[in-house]
Design a binder for these strands. Structure first.
Lengths: 355, 355
DNA sequence: AGGCTAACCGAAACCGGTTTCGGAAGGCAA
DNA sequence: TTGCCTTCCGAAACCGGTTTCGGTTAGCCT
């Protein structure tokens, strides 16, 4: 790789010293306008670009932030990552900062990796996604005094910056919506509660029930692996109940897809006999069977905001001032519908018997 | 952010000079084993990590590669990105290299950005995805003499390294499969041919036809925007034909989802009246209506291989030696099926009339 | 004892920028 | 002409590492 032209080469080419050229390019006022112009033109012509390693070493900031890729047992795609990175990149590019991504194998690895990452001076800030309830990474990063923002929240989230969707409220809304459709036996398909988002959404489900004067039946909340398969097994447990639910809210779209499959496998039609609502708003849900009703949210916006927040904090602002709660909105497709009354059900079984 | 302990601090702490400490940590042989141990232990205790900006400036390599995020008109999610990044990260972490991601707005921006990126010495290599037929980025990167690998290929791909799926062959396989099911009127739903992958797949479709002695009807290839909506409009054009196809191969899973929707909208059942085959192998396709038959491929493997290849090239190996063609395999779900003969079709319309 | 070698470590240059400090040149007033 | 103040630029320190080179000490041989 041909080493590009250095400051020294540019200086000798111009018959000036490096210090003069450097100041000319960086807009110092003690350089005559004539010289400044001459230097800038020469830099353009020779295609000079300051070596960033040298520059950053000198100015003392890495001008780089790092996104820690989430890792799950199920290696399923994380559809939101690409959009989040896109948004982060947009925010950073305004100031010419770089975006590093890092992923780790085990949880222990991850802590060691974070330690190495910030101690080695490579990065000026971190963003992490989907924290656990009591995420050891956050303590570590705080101890390291490295600026960071969290995409999501932990149980105790008072003393750091975060951007989150109010998923508790979203699940209240989802339950309200279903109650409005006449449902009263509403189930919850969830992910392991070590993830704070899983706990939040369960809480929302429960307060939604309470708000509508509905009893909380423990049989109606099923926790399973965070994947479409998990959604399927959880839903099967629900359908095996003596008195199965008439509506199901799922902690994610992926799990909802599994729920749809389980419902269909019993010869029932989601949106008719049973309502299913997801959470994420994946565009792909429009192609599910039937198209999935879901609580949607803007992922690219999340990336941009997280980037802006992190830069502000690095500039010295108080992290506590940067805590943003966004709302999800109901994206109604076809997997939800009014409660079928018992008469309807009986009609259906009679019809089926006659076939 | 508390500046971590520097080499100098470590040295004074030990009563040695920085050069000694540095060599002790880097495994030079002219340091006594006793000193080496003493230094390493102190480094551990104090949590010393070499400043990477300084280190890389000194050793002259950025130890970082960059992935250029693909951008499309349709801002639809790129489900493969997360997995690809995962694989790239795995390959790089073996040597403690960093992974930068960069995205650009317009095409012109992207060229300028690449130029800045490599000239500024931030990166030691590049990987780009889904090149155009005649991709200006490749010429630029070659001119800059920056090591790179391409995920995909251009029209002329002899003189650089790439990793690609043999999508031409995959489409031959898909056509063969459909012919084996009795189909002869097979259509192609494609993306704009400026993308080389779109051209490759069209070629594969056509040679597949030829190999089975089938005529190539220009009406049966429909090019549309690279998205699910595009797939829908293309398929609608096909179904409006006086003699519509009985099978459709699609350039991507996303477009195939649109095709499924268009077919269902006419009251036809994909997999029965019309076969639809996608390309990508998205895990999500299992939840489409009906589950999408597709040509699948391993994305995480692609990332690992691309990373390994790039590192080899940076080490000085000949890029031409690193050209890898992988095969896709048919992942059969339920959107394909045997040709329904005319009698069947007539039966169906008679049945419909009687309802 | 003198000399030679090997083992071990310190001094200093270097990577390529940024930034402080001071000095030379020129303009103006006294 | 001297003195002072700007204006403009060069010299050099510095960021935090790596690496070359050379020097000191100890050990061994003759």
């Amino acid at each position: 790789m041909a080493q590009s032209v250095s400051l020294k080469m540019l200086a000798t080419h111009l018959g000036l010293t490096v210090s003069t050229v450097s100041r000319a390019l960086n807009g110092y006022t003690d350089i005559s306008p004539a010289t400044r112009e001459r230097v800038k033109r020469a830099a353009d012509e020779l295609g000079y670009r300051a070596n960033q390693n040298a520059r950053r070493l000198s100015i003392g900031t890495p001008e780089t932030i790092c996104y820690l890729m989430p890792r799950y047992a199920s290696s399923g795609t994380q559809p939101f990552v690409a959009q989040l990175l896109q948004g982060l990149g947009e925010a950073l590019s305004k100031r010419n900062w770089d975006l590093l991504v890092s992923h780790a194998g085990t949880s222990k690895d991850e802590l060691a990796q974070i330690d190495r990452l910030v101690r080695s001076g490579r990065i000026g800030g971190l963003v992490i996604s989907r924290p656990l309830k009591n995420d050891p990474r956050i303590r570590l990063i705080q101890d390291l005094k490295c600026p960071f923002v969290v995409h999501g929240r932990t149980a105790a989230c008072d003393d750091y910056a975060w951007y989150d969707i109010d998923s508790a409220r979203a699940f209240v809304d989802a339950v309200d919506h279903l109650v409005g459709l006449g449902h009263s036996r509403i189930a919850f398909v969830g992910a392991p509660l070590q993830y704070q988002f899983a706990q939040d959404r369960l809480n929302g489900y429960q307060t939604g029930l309470k708000g509508n004067g509905l009893p909380g039946d423990p049989d109606l909340v099923q926790i399973a692996e965070f994947s479409d398969e998990g959604g399927e097994v959880a839903t099967n447990s629900l359908l095996d109940l003596p008195e199965p639910p008439t509506a199901i809210v799922c902690v994610s779209d992926a799990m909802a897809f599994g729920a749809l499959a389980a419902v269909r496998a019993r010869g029932l039609m989601p949106g008719k006999e049973i309502s299913v609502i997801g959470y994420d708003g994946l565009s792909f849900g429009a192609h599910a069977n039937p198209p999935l009703t879901t609580m949607a949210q803007p992922q690219a916006h999340a990336g941009r905001r997280l980037g802006d927040m992190l830069l502000s904090i690095i500039d010295g602002e108080d992290p506590k001032k940067h805590q943003e709660l966004q709302r999800a909105h109901l994206l109604r497709r076809q997997s939800d519908g009014p409660l079928q009354h018992v008469v309807d059900r009986e009609k259906r079984s009679i019809r089926e018997e006659h076939q």
